[in-house]
Design a protein around this nucleic acid. Structure first.
Lengths: 231, 231
DNA sequence: ACTATAGAGACATCGGACGTTTGCCGGCGA
DNA sequence: TCGCCGGCAAACGTCCGATGTCTCTATAGT
């Protein structure tokens, strides 16, 4: 396979080299096809690939544009990749989170504003109020951690951790937590993290985040074991 | 746009649900098209996207198969994404590496075998011998860190860090190092990491890796500043 | 000045045709 | 019996042209 992949590489390279800056509009498909020496079908496949990678933005009836190339866009694909990982590699993902999330939470403790803390407190309240609703728990849990990490101001870091904490993964952990009557304890772990952040205590935030990830990992392990054993 | 994206989602969901395990062969394109209610063109675009994400493996003249879904495949896309990030976000990437790589190196200190250490020593020798060849330095530098991280046995972690340390990024750092006459010092930083690993000293490995990433970040900053200033 | 509408431009999708590669299998020879 | 070789068939790679549909814009009318 060469034609289409060449086209993909060519467009990508033109973007990387700065020849096609963010926001640029690409030539119409027929013209692009002529320019790159292949049919329109091939161009469409190439464009589709780059669109799925959030590199290009295709607007029907208008044209095809280069996206902002923001980390939040380009790293979005990580999430879908993680969703497709097989069960036995999910523990590897947790090990990565175990390394990264505490450090990130520690960093957040240094950079967090009062407004951020208030928002976090609100999410914590919501979480406590939703203690019986698995769906909402997952939602608030996601919001909690996302909010914490986002305060680091590092969009790449935020997108990365968001991707590593996919919805499916979170859902499995919470299923285990709820079935194991450990949901309440886990909510309190969030409170502990919150207190450390409010105290702007980097090391404490780091430690409490590590404990929290460890809990998640333990319950994921339980869920995975139950699945592989019980079917 | 719905038809093609629906097809992508449908195939992905069938894989995620286990309906299409790794190695499965998909129906021929015409049949798949009929089954999903769209033309072959649409199916081809969908398949191409999943192929570019290393989810499907298309063998011309044979058929289309589900890949092993190994982390090293699925996380490969991270590399190309990072390559497309704009200059001002590369520092964010370095901040992530600053958090992750020391932890990973520390973990490696615990899990590294004697054979691993020997291999690492060899790479270090190669690096010293290539002190004048930027191309080789980059190559050995990549090999060094990859080897270290790989000894953690965590393929997800390895793929992630590989992706974050793209070739372009490394090249820029080394350009700065060489032009700033700091290449020798940086090679010695590798030696320091090597010694810590050989001593199986987790904390020392972690600290030396942090210093090393910090050096890289500093030189990247220099290169980026020179670029934005000098044109 | 504002709104409605018509037109042009551009992507979305389709269907079929032909080339090319790969895998498989049967046959031949050592 | 083993291994090499050639041919057949299946499946992907690429192309082409036509039609549907959406978006943007400019024009005309109020």
């Amino acid at each position: 396979m060469a034609l289409t992949d060449d086209a993909i590489a060519k467009i990508r390279s033109m973007i990387q080299s700065g020849e096609l800056p963010p926001g640029t509009r690409l030539p119409p498909e027929p013209q692009l096809a002529a320019q790159m020496g292949l049919s329109r079908s091939g161009v469409r496949e190439a464009v589709k690939v780059l669109e799925s990678a959030r590199v290009l933005d295709v607007r029907r009836g208008d044209g095809t544009y280069v996206t902002s190339l923001a980390p939040r866009l380009l790293l979005q694909g990580l999430g879908v990749a993680v969703e497709l990982l097989r069960d036995d590699t999910l523990l590897e993902v947790m090990e990565v989170r175990r390394m990264l999330e505490p450090m990130a939470t520690g960093l957040a403790a240094l950079r967090m504003t009062d407004a951020d803390l208030d928002e976090l407190g609100q999410i914590l309240e919501d979480m406590r109020a939703a203690a019986d609703d698995a769906e909402k728990l997952i939602q608030f849990d996601t919001a909690f951690h996302h909010t914490v990490i986002a305060t680091t101001g590092n969009e790449t870091l935020t997108s990365l951790l968001d991707g590593l904490s996919g919805r499916t993964l979170r859902a499995r952990v919470w299923r285990g937590l709820i079935e194991g009557n450990a949901a309440h304890q886990t909510i309190e772990e969030h409170h502990t993290i919150y207190l450390a952040l409010r105290a702007r205590d980097q090391l404490l935030a780091q430690a409490s985040a590590l404990l929290h990830v460890n809990t998640s990992e333990a319950w994921l392990r339980t869920v995975l074991a139950a699945k592989s054993a019980g079917g």
